[in-house]
Each structure stands twice: as C-alpha cells, then as structure tokens.
C-alpha cells in the first residue's frame, strides 16, 4: 500500500483546518496621552483632507480617478507610528492617506490632485502617482499589485545595503489575488527580505465582495505556503495596528524575513468617486461608522481618560481644517504646469 494511503491515523490528529491564523493575535498597544493625540490628529487630517478631495472632485477641480481613504485611516496611522526614519513605504492608488501619514505636505498632495505645478509630481502624476524621495515614499501605483513586487525590491535594497530599515508594502484584498504577489512572497522569504506586507482588507475589490473573489478570505494565511507568518489585525483600532506593526517590523528588522498583516478595515466611500456602491447597503456602511469608526474610538478614549477636553479637541479640529483649507486654496490658485513641462522628466539627462 502506498505510504500516502496510510493517512487516516494521522488525519484525526491534524489541527483543525479552521485555525484562524498561524500566530496568535497581538493585543492592542497601550497608548500614552501623546500617542493618542498624535493618532487623533493624523487620522483627522486624512479624514478632512479626503472629504475636501471628494468635494473638489464634485466641483470638477479634480479629474480622472480619485480613491478616498475614508474609514481606513487607522491602518496607515498605526503603521507609521511604529516605523522609523528610512523605512520605505509603497502602496497602490488609494494613496492620499499614506502620503499625509508619511509627512508629505497637504498642499503638495492636493495640488497634485488638481494637476497644478506645485503638486508633488509637478501635476504630471495625479491622484494615483505621487512620490517623495525625501519621505521615502515610493508611490502611488496605478496597476493593481505592481507595488507588491516593487516594495519587495525596496526591501531588497535595504538588505543589500545592510541597513536595518524595512519596506512597508501596502495592498488590498483585491491585489492579493494577483500572481506577482506570490512570486514576490516566494522571493521575499527565500532571501529573507525585510518587508511587511500590509493587506488592507476593506472587504471589497472595487465592487466585488471578498467572498466572491477570494478562495481563502483569511489573508493572514496567504503566506503559509511560503512559511511567511501572518496575523489578522483589527484595522479600525489604531492601537491594535500599532502593536501588530511593532511586532512585524521587529521581526523584519531582526533579519527574519517578511511578515504579513491583514488589516481588517472598511472604506466608507465608493471604490472611486465614480462608484455608486450599489453592491452594499447603506445600513452596512452606517453600522461600521456607528460602531467602529477609527477616529471616534480614539476621541472617546481621549475624553474618557481625560487626556484632553472637548475644547482641546476642537482646537485640533480647527487646526486640521485650517491645513486642509489652505491646501485647497493653494490647489485651486496654483497655475497649471507650463506647457514646456510636457517634454521634461522623460529621461534623466546624463
């Protein structure tokens, strides 16, 4: 009898297939007053910025595709709170929040959305394609999944140079089904590259619910066949994100190779501005907003723990609104690129 037929005895002893993750879920971090306030401020800036972007899109000031990050703010905020100078960040086209969290100026981001010369890419990249060498932000990529191989390459460069920086490579539940993701997983583990794969599972790949597109909907398990550890994280709780990020980044910095974090999150708006979001109910969105809004959670904690009072928070709100309004003012008054810019930046002139 072939050896493989002798399985029944061991089958019973095997772990149940329903084991959720291959590592225990990390408990949320305990935040200091400063950390709570910082998280609040960054998330609020992203929220207000995106609301303004949506408004300006509606007014025809922003063209093309525009993908808003509203609802997912805790993910990039918690990740950035765990990273350090020199860590590379790369993501897909839902990228405005990542840029703001990386410290790129709201003015430059919004002026890029309006296609003006003061935009971060001189108006030549647009919403989906923005970069900042200074902030180690490598885009901003419009092709679903391409950033996963690129982000793995950023990690390759860290390892090649022998520094202890990591690559924070973000992609969504939709991109998780692309072939090059697994090619990258394989090489990242094979070569022990310091990359944290942050899968922002917002439950919909454009209009397709996760369960209609993914055979394995536990994205933390997507690296199992490559021996990449992974865990599911409450992506609506910035403290949970921060704790998981600390653990994953430490794993990578120590030379152990890649780590997968599935951030369970939710986008409140459509896939892009032109998406009426008929594939889900208003009630579903409202329920998430009411029960697990990432900003409300922090706000409530701050007030409960008396880290700040209503007036202090109002002041933060006013400051954030100020930044966004100034950015909007700049993004609408700044001129379009000079026509001569059409032919620049195609090749580096050597």
């Amino acid at each position: 009898m072939p050896a493989t037929r002798a399985a029944p005895a061991t089958k019973a002893a095997r772990k149940p297939a329903a084991a959720k993750t291959n590592l225990p879920v990390t408990p949320p971090a305990t935040f200091t007053k400063e950390q709570e306030l910082e998280a609040y401020r960054i998330m609020l800036l992203i929220r207000r910025f995106e609301e303004k972007s949506g408004q300006m899109y509606g007014m025809g000031l922003i063209g093309g595709f525009c993908h808003l990050y509203i609802g997912q703010e805790a993910v990039v905020t918690g990740m950035q709170m765990a990273s350090k100078e020199g860590d590379a960040v790369i993501t897909g086209y839902r990228d405005h929040g990542h840029m703001l969290a990386c410290g790129m100026a709201a003015k430059g981001v919004l002026a890029e959305l309006t296609g003006r010369r003061g935009g971060l890419s001189k108006g030549k990249g647009g919403s989906m394609h923005m970069f900042s060498k200074e902030k180690h932000f490598y885009g901003g990529h419009g092709i679903v999944g391409a950033q996963v191989s690129l982000g793995t390459g950023l990690a390759f460069a860290h390892k090649y140079r022998g520094n202890d920086n990591v690559s924070l490579t973000y992609f969504g539940d939709g991109a998780s089904n692309q072939g090059q993701v697994y090619e990258s997983f394989n090489m990242a583990e094979l070569w022990k590259l310091p990359v944290v794969y942050v899968i922002e599972n917002n439950r919909y790949a454009m209009g397709t619910a996760v369960t209609r597109a993914s055979a394995q909907t536990d994205f933390s398990r997507r690296g199992i066949s490559f021996n990449i550890p992974g865990e599911q994280v409450d992506g609506m709780d910035v403290r949970a994100v921060k704790a998981a990020a600390d653990k994953a980044i430490a794993w990578c910095r120590a030379g152990n190779g890649p780590y997968i974090l599935e951030m369970q999150t939710y986008r409140y708006r459509g896939h892009s501005m032109s998406d009426p979001a008929k594939y889900r109910t208003r009630e579903e969105v409202q329920k998430v907003r009411d029960e697990s809004d990432p900003i409300e959670m922090v706000r409530n904690r701050i007030l409960a723990q008396k880290f700040a009072g209503e007036d202090d928070l109002k002041k933060i709100d006013a400051d954030v609104r100020n930044i966004v309004n100034e950015a909007a003012e700049f993004a609408t008054s700044d001129p379009e690129p000079d026509p001569s810019e059409l032919y620049t930046d195609i090749l580096v002139e050597s």
Binding site: T152, L154, A157
Partner: peptide, 26 residues
C-alpha cells in the same frame, strides 16, 4: 551570491523587485 543572484522562474516578480531596487537607488 550577494551580487549575482539566481531567481526563481518568476519574471513578473523579479522584474518588479529589480525596478523597486532601482527606485531605491541600486
């Protein structure tokens, strides 16, 4: 082996890794 690297048969993936490394300055 650090500078002469055998890849798996995954052109899409290793081309992307190469581009990412180049964007980082290698």
């Amino acid at each position: 082996a650090k500078r002469v690297i055998d890849t798996p048969i995954t052109e899409h993936g290793f081309a992307g890794i190469g581009v990412g490394a180049a964007m980082a300055g290698l």
